[in-house]
Design a protein around this nucleic acid. Structure first.
Length: 286
DNA sequence: ATTTCATCCTGGAGGC
DNA sequence: TGCCTCCAGGATGAAA
């Protein structure tokens, strides 16, 4: 599932590949994924995009943002299985054809394909987006409000976030409070900080809370450096798998021994999500 | 206001 | 082998 490190990696790959290039045409094969104020006028919007250069490729939370030189924006939410693939072959030539919902036709006959088997992904068409302050345009388009970027979260702000009785895992997945974590990195960060996922936020001491914030940033940075985590679907725009999977300590390891203490990793449901933890390294109590 | 829960969607896994 | 059921989960909007 594309979380912050995967989208960061996608943004870096696409930036390298298409920044400064002409977007000759944006082909939408499944208009149903289009959202935003231009939803009903998407053809007209994309006609304004055609022939412009890609000025910027960036990321906010788990959203990928492509801005043209006339300040029109394609904003992708990747959902569960959304990915981008660079190539030159015709779309129909491979097994992803039926799940290719958008194709960016770049100069030199190159293609950037947005592929999403499970179809939770969405494309927002926005105008007036300032790449340095993207939230304003997102709010204007009535997208859900986002909390601060996890990697930019300040210690005092995080301390205030923990003033609630929700379970800590629920908080970490709440994009309106802290943006970028998904199921994999929430579980990994809680393991690294030694906190049980059902722990009430308010029961976490300041000191342990700061450990948690450090763990969040550390696991995200290490995952970015490893090119993200490929559990099943994720690939970089060049088709590469993420290398962080073999570094996972708890996610997907239920029934296997903890790499720190040897206890058996357990899996429960928290906030409606599969949740993995070590019962010894992450005790329930204070 | 805050928090939980069903919903969307399809490929893959597991049961019989 | 084949058919059926269930599960994964990010974000959203309704419900509690």
């Amino acid at each position: 599932m594309p979380e912050l490190p995967e989208v960061e990696n996608i943004a870096a790959g696409l930036r390298e590949a298409i920044r400064g290039e002409y977007l000759e045409r944006v082909e939408v094969r499944r208009p149903g994924i289009i959202q935003g104020p231009h939803r009903r006028r998407w053809r007209r919007f994309l006609a304004q995009v055609a022939g412009r250069r890609v000025a910027r490729v960036t990321r906010r939370a788990k959203r990928l943002i492509i801005v043209t030189d006339n300040r029109l924006t394609l904003l992708f939410q990747l959902g569960m299985t959304g990915k981008f693939l660079l190539g030159t072959k015709p779309v129909e030539a491979d097994e992803f054809a039926k799940h290719t919902h958008v194709v960016l036709h770049v100069g030199d006959r190159r293609l950037v394909r947005f592929i999403d088997a499970r179809r939770f992904g969405r494309l927002w068409l926005l105008d007036g987006l300032d790449p340095d302050e993207p939230d304003e345009a997102m709010n204007a388009a009535r997208m859900g409000p986002l909390g601060p970027e996890a990697l930019a979260m300040r210690t005092d702000a995080f301390r205030r976030l923990l003033q609630t009785e929700r379970s800590v895992k629920t908080l970490l997945l709440d994009q309106t409070r802290i943006a970028g974590l998904g199921n994999i990195y929430a579980d990994e960060a809680l393991f690294a900080a030694g906190i049980h996922p059902t722990r009430r936020c308010g029961a976490i001491s300041d000191e342990v809370g700061q450990d948690l914030l450090r763990a969040i940033k550390s696991v995200l940075r290490r995952a970015i450096r490893a090119g993200g985590t490929t559990f099943s679907d994720y690939r970089s725009p060049y088709g590469d798998m993420g290398r962080f999977r073999r570094r996972l300590r708890v996610y997907g390891r239920q029934g296997e021994p903890c790499r720190r203490c040897g206890a058996t990793i357990e899996k429960i449901v928290v906030a409606g999500r599969g949740t993995h933890f070590c019962p010894t390294c992450q005790p329930v109590g204070p």
